[in-house]
C-alpha cells in the first residue's frame, strides 16, 4: 500500500512538472510576453532591455529551469497589471473564498446526493424514484453559467430572497454553491442509486435479511457502506469538477476566488498570475486525489491488504 501511495506521489510530481512545462511554453511561445509588458509607445531599445531583463535572450530550456527554480522558491513573478502585486500572494489571498465555496458545495452535494440516491434506490420504480431521476438528469444537463443566471433571476431579482452576487455572509453562498454543486449532486445521486440497487440485490444483503435485521439496518449497516465505495472513488473527479466549475461560477457570481482570478488573468494575458493560478489549482487536484486514495483505504478493508 505504501508503495502504491509513493507511486501516486511520484505521478503527482510528474503531473505538476508537466503542467508547469505546458504553461511555460504557452506563455513564452504563443503569448509574446514582451509585447504584453511593453506599452505601445516603447522604443526598440526599451524592448531589447526588457528582453535582457527577463532573460528571454537565453535558450528556452535555460529559461524554463530558471522559471522552475524561482517557482520552487515561491517566486512566481509579479502581476503585469497596474498593481504589480506578487503573483503568489495574489493567488493565495483569493484562495479562502474559493475553498470555502467549494467546501460548502461539496458538503451539501455529498449529503443530499447520498440521501437522494438511497431514497431513489429503496423506492425504485415509484414516483419518488422518477422525480429523483428527473432531477439528476436535469442537473447533469444544465450548463452552470446558465443555471447561475437563472437562479439569480428567480431568487435574487424576482423573489428578492438572496443577494444577486458578491462575497459575504451565509446568504451569499446559497446560489453559487447550488450552481457549483448541481452537476456533482446529479452525478453522486446517480452513482449512489446505481450502487445501492446493486448492493440491495447482493447476497450479503440477503444474508442480512435472513438474520432477521430490520429493513433500516439492512440499508444503513450493510448496503450503504458498500454503495459509498464508488462515491469515494469518484471524489477526486468531483472535486476537480468543482475547481474547474469555479471558473464559470465565480465569474457569474462575482465571487472573489481563484476561479475568477484565473479568468481575469487569462483575459488580461497576465502570464505570471496565470502560471501561478494554474499551478496552484493543479496542486489542489493532486492533493485531492491523494486524499481520496487515503479515504479509500479507510473505507474498504480489501484495499488495506492489497499492494
Amino acid at each position: 500500500m505504501l508503495k502504491h501511495l509513493a507511486g501516486r506521489l511520484a505521478e503527482a510530481l510528474v503531473a505538476l512538472v508537466l503542467m508547469s512545462l505546458v504553461i511555460f511554453l504557452l506563455s513564452r511561445v504563443i503569448g509574446d510576453p514582451v509585447a504584453l509588458l511593453l506599452s505601445d509607445s516603447a522604443t526598440e531599445a526599451d524592448r531589447q532591455l526588457l528582453i535582457q531583463q527577463l532573460g528571454l535572450d537565453r535558450p528556452m530550456w535555460q529559461q524554463y529551469f530558471t522559471f522552475l527554480g524561482n517557482a520552487l522558491q515561491g517566486d512566481f513573478g509579479q502581476s503585469v497589471t497596474a498593481g504589480r502585486e506578487d503573483a503568489l500572494e495574489l493567488v493565495l489571498s483569493r484562495l479562502p473564498a474559493s475553498l470555502s465555496l467549494a467546501g460548502v458545495a461539496l458538503a451539501f452535494t455529498l449529503v443530499l446526493g447520498i440521501l437522494l440516491g438511497v431514497l431513489a434506490a429503496i423506492t425504485r420504480g415509484t414516483l419518488a424514484d422518477l422525480a429523483v431521476r428527473m432531477l439528476a438528469l436535469l442537473g447533469q444537463s444544465a450548463p452552470s453559467f446558465w443555471l447561475g443566471i437563472m437562479l439569480i433571476y428567480v431568487f435574487a431579482v424576482h423573489l428578492g430572497w438572496l443577494p444577486t452576487s458578491g462575497f459575504g455572509g451565509p446568504a451569499y453562498y446559497v446560489l453559487p454553491a447550488l450552481t457549483l454543486g448541481l452537476f456533482t449532486l446529479a452525478a453522486i445521486t446517480r452513482l449512489v442509486r446505481a450502487s445501492m440497487l446493486e448492493a440491495l440485490s447482493s447476497e450479503y444483503v440477503k444474508l442480512a435479511r435472513i438474520k432477521g435485521l430490520s429493513e433500516w439496518s439492512v440499508v444503513l449497516r450493510h448496503a450503504l457502506g458498500n454503495s459509498l465505495i464508488p462515491v469515494v472513488t469518484f471524489m477526486g473527479t468531483f472535486f476537480a469538477t468543482m475547481i474547474t466549475g469555479a471558473v464559470v461560477v465565480e465569474t457569474v457570481f462575482a465571487w472573489p476566488g481563484i476561479g475568477r482570478l484565473a479568468y481575469e488573468s487569462i483575459m488580461a494575458r497576465d502570464f505570471p498570475v496565470i502560471q501561478t493560478v494554474v499551478l496552484v489549482i493543479t496542486a489542489f487536484f493532486i492533493l485531492a486525489n491523494l486524499i481520496v486514495d487515503l479515504l479509500y483505504l479507510a473505507i474498504d478493508p480489501r484495499m488495506r491488504a492489497a499492494g
Binding site: 505546458v22 476537480a240 471558473v247 494554474v278
Partner: peptide
C-alpha cells in the same frame, strides 16, 4: 497510458481557456 491518466487528471477547462485566450 500514463499520458492519458495525466491528461485526465489535469484541470483541462483551464488549459482550454488559456489556449483559447492566447490563440
Amino acid at each position: 497510458m500514463r499520458l492519458v491518466d495525466l491528461a485526465l487528471s489535469l484541470p483541462v477547462i483551464l488549459l482550454a481557456l488559456l489556449f483559447a485566450a492566447v490563440v
